[in-house]
């Protein structure tokens, strides 16, 4: 890879082009491997595709760009504190409706920090949900027979299937 490259271009699964700085791309192992690959040398025009949709990729790149300075250089405790606050806001304001897509993307791109953050956010949202709400968001069918439900109710008084 040429040292003159500061940003790379990638395609989303929807075919849109996105720019990501080299230092931000280093947060993801697969992107890092791509960086070392020939296709980013100056004389190569091929643009790699990332199997993440545009709406999600925008947020993933935003996360990478925010976290890149700290990940690459190490930072003071006050920076870490500020970043933590930013993470909470990022999860609260922006990504709630695409949380599962973010989870899939963080998993696919091997981004540990974003993955843990998204898992914890999902857990916090699920905490107070009813069983039927959980089934809906995870596309799960109630596969207990009525006898099994009755047995579970006997074993755990107060448990609800709704």
């Amino acid at each position: 890879m040429s040292s003159s490259v500061e940003a790379i271009t990638v395609l989303s699964s929807d075919g849109d082009e996105f720019k990501i700085t080299v230092s931000a791309a280093k947060l993801s192992k697969p992107l890092n491997w791509m960086l070392e690959d020939v296709c980013f040398s100056d004389d190569c025009d091929e643009v790699p595709t990332i199997e993440v949709n545009s709406k999600t990729l925008v947020k993933v790149i935003e996360y990478c760009e925010k976290h890149a300075p700290r990940a690459n250089s190490g930072a003071s405790d006050s920076d870490a504190e500020e970043l933590k606050k930013w993470d909470i806001e990022f999860m609260k304001m922006d990504v709630k409706d695409i949380l599962f897509h973010i989870l899939m993307a963080a998993n696919y791109l091997h981004m540990e920090g974003l993955y843990d953050l998204a898992c914890q956010t999902a857990a916090d949202l699920m905490k107070g949900m009813t069983v039927s709400q959980i089934r809906k968001i995870f596309h799960i069918k109630n596969d207990f027979s009525s006898e099994e439900q009755e047995q579970l109710r006997r074993q755990h008084p107060g448990c609800s299937f709704d």
Binding site: A122, A123, M126, I140, F144, Q149, H156, C159, S160
Partner: peptide, 19 residues
């Protein structure tokens, strides 16, 4: 990974989600 971040109280309830 998500489930292991949940409190015990929620997990007890979520035993009824599916087999």
């Amino acid at each position: 990974t998500i489930l292991k971040s949940l409190p015990v109280k929620s997990l007890i309830r979520f035993r009824c989600v599916c087999k």
